[in-house]
């Protein structure tokens, strides 16, 4: 439970039905409200935010590079025979680029980040809770929501879109590599074919939804860590429940985003 604004949250948490899903949802909304409130406070922890950007963004680059490029490669190898049946192999670069930019890049990158970053945040904050480090931050006259939560949530919301762009770029390069397995096409020709099919409307909604994905990964990880129980087992629970809930919410938000985008087209 959050201690800085204990009046609201503790009343809810201390209720005897604290395992109720409604209590959990209520605590979740109060937590998000606190995040927004502390985000706009004057005393922003900029140094910690930059450190978290490094941890969340830079340290995830190798994983995203591998998955992004394989994503493009596999998509190309599997799509090529189907397109060849219709004599539409020239459509391959455009199809892969649109698939990656609109849907596959954002969702798969977000799901991978939910696994790596969400579980990391959940476990880290959960273990800080168990070992009283969050209390130690609070008695050191530092607001733990501002220091631990806001920095991680904003760093995730900032870095996930960048990681998605990185995954998209490497996915297209992976696709070019895949196209060269059974043929020969120059990179410049491949890119020009790919981007001739990509429009602003393909790119913009996908980019916006990745900001939400990042926010969700950070907020869910922090929430689960902050609400971890008192034993060491609860650290594991916080980590895996962060991944499960963040992944589920990513899918739900994606469905909503796709519907909204569809209405715009």
């Amino acid at each position: 439970m959050v201690r800085t604004k204990k009046n609201n949250l503790k009343q809810v948490s201390d209720d005897e039905n604290k395992d109720s899903i409604f209590i959990d949802i209520a605590n979740g909304f109060i937590f998000i409200k606190l995040i927004f409130k502390e985000t706009f406070s004057l005393d922003f922890e900029f140094k910690e935010f930059l450190y978290q950007c490094y941890q969340i963004g830079y340290k995830t680059l190798p994983l995203i590079a591998v998955t992004g490029s394989i994503m493009g490669l596999v998509l190309t190898i599997q799509s090529r025979p189907v397109l060849a049946e219709f004599g539409a192999v020239t459509m391959l670069p455009g199809m892969v680029a649109v698939s990656l930019i609109r849907e596959m890049g954002p969702v798969i990158t977000a799901l991978i980040c939910a696994g790596k970053i969400g579980s990391g945040i959940g476990a880290e904050i959960g273990s800080m809770k168990v070992t009283e480090q969050i209390d130690a931050i609070e008695v050191s006259s530092t607001n733990p929501i501002r220091y631990l939560v806001v920095t991680r949530v904003l760093a995730a919301a900032t870095m996930i879109p960048i990681l998605v762009l990185y995954a998209d770029a490497l996915g297209i390069l992976g696709s070019w590599a895949g196209a060269n397995i059974k043929g020969e096409v120059s990179l410049i020709l491949f890119l020009s074919q790919a981007f001739s099919h990509v429009e602003f409307i393909d790119f913009f909604p996908a980019f916006v939804k990745t900001i939400f994905f990042g926010f969700l990964i950070g907020a869910v990880g922090c929430y689960k860590g902050y609400h971890a129980g008192n034993g060491t087992a609860s650290v594991g629970v916080a980590a895996h429940s962060s991944v499960v809930l963040a992944s589920l919410l990513i899918i739900v938000v994606d469905v909503i985003a796709v519907q909204i985008t569809d209405m715009m087209l």
Partner: peptide
Amino acid sequence: REKIGFLFQSGALFD
């Protein structure tokens, strides 16, 4: 809190 020191049972050092 600036005037109160609190020694935690576990030490609670930031690991």
